[in-house]
Design a protein around this nucleic acid. Structure first.
Lengths: 337, 337
DNA sequence: GTGAAAGCGCTAACAA
DNA sequence: TTGTTAGCGCTTTCAC
């Protein structure tokens, strides 16, 4: 085991103090250029590597932000993260990514770990199971800024950014109605999530506004974001006495599964059945028929979230003007409707 | 700003030493049950949270493993990470995920940060730009175990796990030949990557073995893993004097782009042109026609990588019997061939 | 500009 | 079983 080189080693060889070395390494102003150069050179010669733990421990800043998402396995989330990283890196922050796998328990653990690792801030999208938000409140009380991302809650008072789900759902349902569909079904997500409730409400609102009475048999809800379950629900809907002529799905992944099942059952899309999704996943336009959906600016949303977080880290006093940003998605009409 | 509670605070109120508190908190054997309980209770009452930085700094163990992938945005990578987390969590390790975004420079930075943050080990898949591996060698010399994952190199002597790309490419090309295709093209990835070279070689080997002479005009290479570029290459291939009757694509994402372009050009798949991918992305089976591909057990590979890493962390002396695991993918025949 | 010294919060010998 | 003590490697006053 090679001895690890520390600033002390550099200091000794250069016959200066560790304080000077520390300053030089961090590019402090109050240091003579020659000293600085000498330190930098010696650091290189000795193959010095700073210990970030020690540094964060004593400075109380880690230059790391933590991101918690339900899964990195879906386009919306991974692309949001890309947006977050994009701004974080320009400000020299590193991004630590964690996934809760839709588990409340794991989410709590992650948040705790993040806080205990003294990250400078957290951006979080709740798991589908999360109904209690004490773990977040505790973090905020520890003076770690938290941004709620997409899957938010009204119970916590902090910065938030989310899609205008009600509006978006209403918009795309309206589009279906304009296509002369009257029997519109909805496959939704778990109603623990505000997002899911909003989309359901938006869907209903569009129907009512056009004088269509929502049919409870056509409102089904998944507890799992999988292709398979979407397929099952599709079959279930098609088995209702009066078959629907359109389906608005909570998310593209659901729509893809539903459409696949529909085609398998010999249903013609969009002729017999129009299908719409939400999220504009990268693959949606490569389906046949290509999927009509609401496009969410996930990359931009990530950027905004990161900007908000860095602002709040850098100016803690701004704390009181919490902002809640709502982003309107845009309708992308393709072949499935 | 609330004062942060430390083990010292607990020690003072309980009139015991910090060492005792530290032991109790970590569930050490050599502690009287009553003391332990008292400490735990006091910790709870005071709302104590351990400072992981301080703990890692002094123990020289972080219980964190770092994972570096080119992108989390593709199924193979995100699913591998799921596998890694699966075993890491059972052993109480946390997983820090980083993406290099296919940038060599960013990869270097991440690896350096990881090492400087004293993670216990690293699992890495190289960026497409990475041709020099000094940054990895340096980490290994710092006694941090490194597992090379999927995108590996022969230049570094350490644990490795990867798909048997040569075999897989040969297998699926063989399948195309069996389907009576004689004019088989290949859309490959950047040849900086060993993975890409192996798949190209496997493709050629299959041809030669069946007495088919590879046609250089039908071997094209992308520098970018995008649907768009795949589409362009498809058009390019179709413009060759003698059009191919099959294409083996380096990855599903490429195949999806190529197939989309082909269908747009009015080419009938698989009648005029068979298309095969590699990786069995989650969406591949929802395409029409559904994609023939080689399935890689990404989740299992992630698990294996994590197991190897934890082994090497827990028994450093085992260092010398580096293992290189090669995993055979399996052919999944669908409608596109 | 630079140095001395006191931590940051925790762990781990070594004693007792 | 518990306490004492010396760090882990770095930052940051406060002097000079």
């Amino acid at each position: 085991m090679k001895k690890t080189i520390t600033i002390k080693d550099i200091a000794e060889r250069l016959k200066v103090s560790v304080a000077t070395v520390s300053r030089a390494l961090r590019g402090s102003q109050e240091i003579k250029p020659e000293t600085k150069e000498a330190v930098l050179k010696m650091a290189k010669d000795l193959d010095y590597h700073p210990n970030l733990l020690a540094s964060s421990l004593s400075s109380k800043r880690s230059k790391i932000i933590g991101v918690v998402v339900p899964t990195i396995n879906r386009f919306f989330w991974s692309n949001s993260i890309a947006g977050i990283e994009n701004v974080a890196y320009t400000e020299n922050y590193k991004v630590m990514i964690f996934q809760s796998s839709e588990s409340y328990q794991k989410e709590i653990e992650i948040v705790e770990t993040l806080a205990n690792s003294r990250v400078d801030g957290i951006i979080i999208a709740f798991s589908k199971e999360t109904e209690n938000f004490d773990h977040i409140q505790r973090v905020i009380e520890r003076d770690i800024p938290v941004i709620l991302f997409e899957r938010v809650t009204e119970e916590i008072n902090t910065w938030k950014i989310q899609t205008d789900d009600f509006w978006g759902a209403k918009e795309i349902t309206g589009h279906l109605i304009q296509q002369n569909r009257k029997k519109i079904a909805h496959i939704g997500g778990p109603l623990t999530l505000e997002v899911c409730r909003k989309r359901l409400e938006g869907y209903r609102s569009a129907l009512l506004e056009h004088g269509i009475q929502p049919n409870p048999a056509w409102e089904v809800v998944l507890d799992d974001f999988s292709f398979e379950q979407a397929g099952e629900k599709m079959e279930q809907l098609w088995a209702t006495p009066e078959k629907p002529d359109a389906i608005f799905c909570f998310a593209d992944i659901i729509a893809i599964g539903a459409q696949h099942a529909a085609l398998k059952m010999g249903i013609s899309v969009p002729k017999q059945l129009a299908i719409a999704g939400f999220g504009n996943d990268i693959t949606s336009r490569y389906l046949s028929p290509a999927l009509t959906t609401m496009s969410q600016p996930s990359f931009e949303m990530g950027k905004t979230a990161a900007t908000m977080l860095l602002d709040s880290i850098q100016q803690p006093e701004k704390k009181l003007d919490y902002k809640c940003i709502s982003v309107k998605p845009t309708l992308v009409i393709r072949e499935s409707t």
